[in-house]
Design a protein around this nucleic acid. Structure first.
Lengths: 204, 204
DNA sequence: TTCTAAACTTGAGTCAATTCTGTTTTTATG
DNA sequence: CATAAAAACAGAATTGACTCAAGTTTAGAA
């Protein structure tokens, strides 16, 4: 039951995503009509709904690619962290933030975030939660690494601290994408300021 | 230019909100059609859009009432906080969380949060941000109070700490409303665990 | 009172996402 | 090959939020 059919399927998937990514970027998420995406991908409207449950899931597929890239970039930092807690955190979170607008506009982020809270059980909603968790785990891994290296106190509950750091960063990022005028440099500075309080509590 | 007209206006506002609140609760936000709300409020569809820019703004009005009640309840704690940082924070945040599902179902919260990120510049989007800020300010006020009472270190940046605490709680609350199965007791316990790290850093 | 501008209300009409149903293509079998 | 079942496709029909042009009511001036 594979061969031609599987190839066509993968190809249509790709065409839909490419068309959507281009249109989302040019016309915005709301501005991109399913009909137009279908036309550009050379499939029918019905077919799009055969591949994705709803418009949000198409955006979701694009967001997932972006976040996975970020996770990959983060791995290097965890493997080889700067030699103090403050810089280590700043470097990892900095990677997340700096990459964030590579493929996705603020408007696309807003939509993605909105959909993930609106429909937490949709395919995208679950995928988004999984991505959040993966980011949290990466921060936790960094903390564990720092503890192992003797750079952070070992009597701190690492996983809980990681969650706290992620939650705060994520909330700051949400506010960042809500304001078109907000800049990346200020966002990073604000998060650094907040983490300073935590760093004081955990650095050896 | 007031009198009868103003009275009718206020009355229609009230009828729309009451009808919407009932329908949102019974049928869910998506399930409640504007047409039905209009019928139940005994106004036309057009009139609803004369009073509210969109469906989300109707929900927004309901959310605002809820959050304002919470803010009011919080004032008592700030005025008369428990005599240690840990209990003081737990009491204030506890009030926020315990009140949260009084008038709003989790589904209504999800929709409200989604709309506020999706349309940050709509009337409701701005109102929601203002409410978040008011909650942050209340936490900051509590911290300032604790510092003034000599219960918390004064060399900590109170406003930044307040923001950190709010952001973390808010993110935890978002995750809470995303899972229908999640319970209030576990949410509070998790937040307490997170705040323990902060408390250790700031209690005298 | 009568009249007029301003403010409101109305509901039919528009628009775009999603669903539905009949048709076509692919696969696997005799 | 021929063919029947399964899978996928197409696009017309549906649905529900939102708009708009026309009609109605109110407030206040003459």
């Amino acid at each position: 039951m594979s061969g031609l059919r599987a190839r066509q399927k993968a190809d249509r998937h790709r065409r839909i995503i490419e068309a959507a990514a281009e249109l989302f970027r040019d016309a915005g998420y709301e501005g991109a009509k399913i009909e137009t995406i279908a036309a550009q991908a050379e499939v029918s409207v019905g077919t799009i709904y055969n591949y994705y449950q709803n418009k949000g899931d198409i955006l979701g597929a694009i967001v997932s690619m972006e976040v996975n890239e970020v996770l990959n970039a983060g791995r290097g930092v965890v493997a080889n962290p700067p030699a103090n807690v403050s810089d280590a955190l700043d470097t990892l979170l900095g990677i997340y933030i700096e990459h964030s607008l590579h493929y996705l506009s603020k408007e696309m982020w807003r939509q993605a975030m909105a959909i993930s809270t609106q429909l937490p059980d949709s395919p995208f909603g679950q995928a988004y939660s999984a991505l959040d968790l993966a980011l949290t785990e990466q921060i936790r891994a960094l903390i564990a690494r720092l503890q192992a290296l003797g750079l952070a106190r070992r009597d701190i509950d690492g996983p809980v601290l990681g969650e706290l750091i992620f939650n705060n960063m994520n909330m700051m990022f949400i506010e960042f994408v809500k304001r078109d005028a907000a800049g990346i440099a200020e966002l990073r500075a604000a998060i650094r300021r907040q983490n300073r309080i935590l760093v004081a509590a955990i650095a050896v």
